[in-house]
Design a protein around this nucleic acid. Sequence first.
DNA 1: ATGAAAGCGCTAACAT
DNA 2: ATGTTAGCGCTTTCAT
Lengths: 339, 339
Amino acid sequence: MAKATIDDVAELAGVSIKTVSRVVNKEPNVRPQTRDKVLAAVAKLDYRPNLSARSLAGNRSYVLGLLYGIPGANYYVIDIQEGVLSICRPQGYDLLIHPCNHRDENLVKEIVNLTHQKGIDGLILTPPLSDNADVIAALLNSKIPFVRVAPTINKEVSLFVETNDWEASYEMTCQLIAMGHERIAFICGHPDHLAVSHRFEGYKAALKKNNIPVRKELVEQGLNSFVSGEQCARKLLAKEPRPTAIFAANDDMAAGVMLVAHQQGIGIPGELSVAGYDDTPVAHQLWPSLTTVRQPVQQMAKKATDLLLKQLRGKDELSSGILSSSLIVRNSTGPAPDA
Amino acid sequence: MAKATIDDVAELAGVSIKTVSRVVNKEPNVRPQTRDKVLAAVAKLDYRPNLSARSLAGNRSYVLGLLYGIPGANYYVIDIQEGVLSICRPQGYDLLIHPCNHRDENLVKEIVNLTHQKGIDGLILTPPLSDNADVIAALLNSKIPFVRVAPTINKEVSLFVETNDWEASYEMTCQLIAMGHERIAFICGHPDHLAVSHRFEGYKAALKKNNIPVRKELVEQGLNSFVSGEQCARKLLAKEPRPTAIFAANDDMAAGVMLVAHQQGIGIPGELSVAGYDDTPVAHQLWPSLTTVRQPVQQMAKKATDLLLKQLRGKDELSSGILSSSLIVRNSTGPAPDA
DNA sequence: ATGAAAGCGCTAACAT
DNA sequence: ATGTTAGCGCTTTCAT
């Protein structure tokens, strides 16, 4: 059986194609009786509206686009994808993924083209694209609906979903302080990821709150990678006196710290406490298991998708949301050795 | 500037829309001079063909679909995605991802519908979908072009790309034997992933080749997860005498083994050698770093995409390919303690 | 080598 | 409540 078209359905049901269209699109003004006839014909012919035709005529494609930077953090991207799909697929939307180099000078053009060419209905932006002012301006200008995940700039210009990085980081640092740590080092995240910078701010605030000076020599600039974590750890562990705790802005870097500590025979958490951020799969596979912060990545993606779909349906008065991260205390942190 | 259409270009270039179409689609029979005029107009107007229209009229969408099972191994999925995108995007194709439950009874219908509705030009299947006979039959029946990654059944019915799991596993086992190990345990992968079963076969073959009996009590059935690795490890490490090496069919399970060994104070590699498979990011973040096998995942994805695109262009005489995996020897394996 | 005309399957205005 | 008529922007015949 060849693919059925709207005409086939209309003929079988003995109505016009417009009526079929009404039924399929759940529009009002169709008698229940007529609707049933049409639905029966649809079922009989296994009719599925052709999306290209729909897109061409109606200017929508039922495809969403997910934009993210490369190289991205794998687990994060996958979590986002799953979150988005779990919401959009039940509502008939599919997902096209578009990882992109956030420093590519043609990025803006590329994204606008993609959206127009494929007739993508709306976009979801994740860091660091959530903070790309050029992209945001272009999308607004082209009136392409979009929602941002964890933006830090121009929050008012679009719907977004965020989490409380600052607070979680503050809390983690306070907890280390409560364990008696004072020489708490921090490894910053990649400078291009503004969202990650909130973590540093939370750390600093907690120290200040507890009257502990923020020592420059205990802060290193990482790049979110395992290797950069290793490098920063070597520098930090060479300081005299050594820090008794190292808080890394993500788990990969924390894993690097742990490796260096192992290599240098520094006991964790006996001699050194290590904390990460993200609760990636590696966090509980490490030995000892890593104390970290769990972000509600999937939930953020779900919420963002929900907002986007509502926006597409013309709902108004939608409001951006914030979802809480939570501390996951495992075995890599403990009382300060000198406490 | 509103979106330019083919008519705008035709008008500006002073030709018919058909000529524009010819130029854009690189068809023959256009005078270089005419072509240049058209290209100039295209550039001036920043014309991009509307894919929906193209799809509707020409029956292709320049969108490929990637099918994979959920829950999938994150790193694997991301690698596949990157590989596919790196090949298809430069050629003007985008990618729609469609993770699916490979045991869902509506799976076949879902996939065929997806393909038809979105007008997807071709599909790439990864394990365990590569081995789903129903899906394969339906795709063949519907004449939907597709390529499979690492299939084990009905290889002859479609193009595919695979790697030498058996050989790599054989080699790894031989290496352990060469280090003096005889009591080498094996943790099998998830039974639904046939591809993983080759790893077990390679292990058995290596033992036999070296006249070491395959002991049933040294083989456990895992589920590809970290937790299942832990469980299997507890069982294996309780045997008397204990195995001196454990070879897990993937890294996550190997990480589980290492955790249990740490907990029980068993030195790695002094008292126990551990080997994994996949070379996931965690492999070099563990302590000690994990000996494993690196699969050419991205390259397989690239090759598969290349084959699919060639197939779409009607090229014939395409042949499936095999790409080699390689042993990555790190610090979790060493001489047998009793050697 | 180039063009004119007829759809692809659907939605949107505008009837009725 | 239902139907009619134009297109959406492109690719295909088939002419020229």
